[in-house]
Design a protein around this nucleic acid. Structure first.
Length: 429
RNA sequence: GUGGCCGUAGUUCAGCGGUAGAGCGCCAGAUUGUGAUUCUGGUUGUCGCGGGUUCGAAUCCCGUCGGUCACCCCA
């Protein structure tokens, strides 16, 4: 890298075709699962008033935003997530929308922070939300959906786990422990950090609130067995045959302040429980941002961690490679053996393309061998050689290594037939 | 914001005070109308950038930019 300043900004991503393919593969599965769950795609603004995020999360968050004053003097920020925009959009129109509102979005998000594995300054986030439905049926559907996203990408039971909890179990705990309700948010932050922090630190903070690490651990060990909302969720998911993916873990509360009910996170089991997706219920956010009382829940998954997870999981990677084998490949290549026939070759290329066949050819005169090599490199299965015998042309199956003579006018049909026939390589001697 | 490690050919890397290297890739030929493999030949550099030490720096020192990983944070 030279020191000139025309390179991409740190943490921003340039998708060359090979990395763009993986991105598109993720998008394809994201959209497909959303479709099967009856979700509609929407899109919000990339740039928002800085206040939209400050209002929800406080001034601290502004430090991690790309924010600036625009030419009109407005304080604006690139979105670090999409839920606030969604809450506003849904709240503004919810009276004319049939409930439940089931929307999803795949959007670029931006955070100003040093990059590391799985985290950059620019990333895509897949967000699925259900608004206007207060019952746990919606939460259960989202959890099932997140599992199906994982399965569609080739992950299996044992690769990942959904850790499920409900924030509402904790006020009850605090009350019994004699801790004032006003300490709930501080308490939840301690719970959220317990797994990352040294035990003594958490223990100290819990003691300050008037409870203890032992009491919390004991409560978590109880697994919310007597908390009806959790049991309802578990029964719902069991009916779908998904119990094997779920593990109740009351220690999951999620860092965000706006969650108000069930919360869940998906973890990569192999890589030290790396979080790959998360979500939960946020019944107050639409009121806070859009002024409409609209219960809601949702989950999000970023493209970077899940992309790494696919790369690091052999069977998921194999599934991607299989998909990739036919992605970005041409189907037919027209070899021009006699330059005098270039106009006829162009007509044939056009005919093939109009028939929906991915077709390419050499822009400049080249030896037949060179052109055949190009056909191979571009992934073509069919090679059409057009030369002085025109309108007779040769159609070769580059996998079977068999060639036949056809009439030029029959090319689209003949190529289509070849492409749909079984790909049988010749027996090796 | 803090710290560790790394920046050499298109790419992966070796060299670590004394002529800038290898594998892979790429190009050409063997093969003038046919792809794999093989063989032969060839191409490729501001050694990230700037300064310093030295007779001499890719190599040592300082700075800087970039990458990467971890911390912080995690919406």
């Amino acid at each position: 890298m030279s020191s000139n300043s025309l390179q991409a900004l740190p943490g921003f991503r340039e998708f060359y075709p090979d990395t763009c393919a993986l991105r598109n593969y993720l998008f394809m599965h994201w959209r497909d699962v959303a479709r099967t769950y009856g979700f509609l795609e929407y899109e919000g603004p990339v740039l928002e008033p800085t206040e939209l995020y400050r209002r929800k999360s406080g001034d601290e968050i502004v430090k991690q935003l790309f924010h600036f004053s625009d030419a009109g003097g407005r304080e604006v920020a690139l979105r670090p997530e999409t839920t606030p925009s969604l809450a506003r959009m849904a709240a503004a129109k919810h009276k004319e929308l049939r409930k439940p509102i089931k929307w999803f979005q795949i959007g670029s998000c931006f955070r100003y922070e040093r990059q590391q594995k799985g985290r950059g300054r620019e990333f895509y986030q897949y967000n699925c939300d259900i608004l206007g439905e207060p019952s746990g049926a919606a939460d259960a559907d989202l959890i099932a959906m997140s599992i199906d996203v994982m399965r569609s990408l080739g992950f299996r039971q044992g690769d990942f786990v959904v850790r499920l909890s409900d924030r509402n179990v904790w006020p009850d705990f605090l009350e019994k422990a004699g801790v004032a309700a006003e300490h709930l948010s501080v308490f939840l932050q301690i719970i959220d950090k317990m797994e990352r922090e040294k035990p003594e630190v958490s223990a100290g903070r819990l003691a300050e609130l008037g409870t203890s690490r032992e009491a919390v651990d004991a409560f978590i060990a109880g697994r919310g067995a007597d908390w009806p909302p959790l049991q309802a969720l578990l029964e719902n998911l069991a009916a779908r045959g998904l119990s094997g993916f779920i593990k109740v873990d009351l220690g999951i509360v999620r860092g965000l302040a706006y969650y108000t009910g069930p919360v869940f996170e998906i973890f990569d089991i192999s890589q030290g429980m790396r979080a790959v997706a998360g979500g939960g219920r946020y019944d107050q956010l639409c009121q806070l941002i859009g002024g409409s009382d609209l219960p809601a829940c949702g989950f999000a998954m970023g493209d970077m961690v899940i992309g790494d997870f696919v790369k690091e999981t052999p069977h998921a990677w194999r599934q991607y490679q299989e998909w990739l084998a036919s992605y970005g490949k041409i189907e037919a290549f027209v070899i021009i053996a006699d330059e005098a026939r270039r106009p006829d070759a162009l007509a044939m290329v056009q005919g093939l393309r109009n028939a929906g066949i991915a077709t390419d050819y050499s822009y400049l005169p080249a030896k037949v061998g060179k052109q055949a090599q190009l056909a191979e490199q571009l992934g073509a299965r069919a090679a059409l050689t057009i030369g002085s015998e025109f309108p007779e042309v040769r159609l070769k199956d580059l996998i079977a290594r068999k060639e036949e003579v056809i009439d030029a006018t029959a090319a689209p049909e003949a190529v289509s037939a070849l492409l749909t026939s079984p790909a049988i390589p010749p027996l090796l001697a």
